[in-house]
Amino acid sequence: MDSISKKYIEDSRTQVTIIASVCAATLLSAVIAMGLGSSSTLDSISTIKIMFGLESGSDLQSAIIWELRFPRVLMAVIGGAALATAGALMQGCLGNPLVSPLTLGVASGAALGAAFAIVLGISIIPSLAIVANAFLFSLVVVGIIIQLGNMRSVSAESYILVGIAITFISGAIVSTFTYFATDAQLSQLTHWSFGSLSRPSLSNVVWISAAIICLMPSAMKWAWDLNTLSLGGDDFAISSGVDPSSTRRNILVLSALMTSIVIAFTGLIGFVGLAAPHMSRLVIGNDYRKLIPCSAVFGSFLMLFADTVGRTIFAPVIIPVGIMLAIIGGPFFMYLLLQNRGVS
């Protein structure tokens, strides 16, 4: 084989090894995170032994492990992967490094839905009031994206501008609600907006995981098309056999769905969807065939790390993951970008 091809294949293998290493580190971190918590009845070693069936724990210990910590850790892994993947997809198909899963207004729609449930008590499914409303309202935003995508000659910038408009409109309505809300409602709404992994139950997390795992292969399907779109724009994509309009619409709908599924249950978590793809770009480059899995594992790792720190650093007080991600991830992200300034 030609020496240029050989080098390319060797580089690709190195990149796959990096992704596999981060994946292994994330799984290891998940096991460690399971052993960390504020319970005095359960230390780290016992937790790991009980998890792997090496020791039979008490009912309380089992409940802490399988009903409290496991859903939380799994949600961190799945939620982080989903939001980071959605961010990578959106940045690529809109050709804009500033885009995150919250840019299109999906999160604002979810916040509006949550506000309807919390302040007005209006919900389609009363037993799942906030979650159902948040999901439904974010789906309305997905519907707007589809309608926009069906229009002729809609540009990447149009999606971003419509997303900003939706964010402003939703924000204004939520502000109006907060103006008339009681203190208790205000507190609940504010807490929802922090983003926390403590809300979803085990059964919720299982359903969320199933949905995200089903959607992930679709994300990989678009990898080649994203490479052409993110490298050279619409003309370059068409000349490579990619229809930019339908591709962009389909990818945005997929990303918005992934985002909706997660934030309907967790509340607003934004930073991981912006930072994880960029961290991956710095490590692995911009080839979406590798960037998508790399962003997913980076997203899982970031979310898991932030949540574990958030629930242990001031235990028994738990700092919501949305806050911890920005506090821990923000400076780290800035450091990485400054270390590699000029790298795009």
Partner: peptide
């Protein structure tokens, strides 16, 4: 098709 110029968002 080779365009006059290519605008890159993310380099490869």
């Amino acid at each position: 098709y080779v365009p006059q110029s290519v605008r890159t968002s993310f380099s490869m």
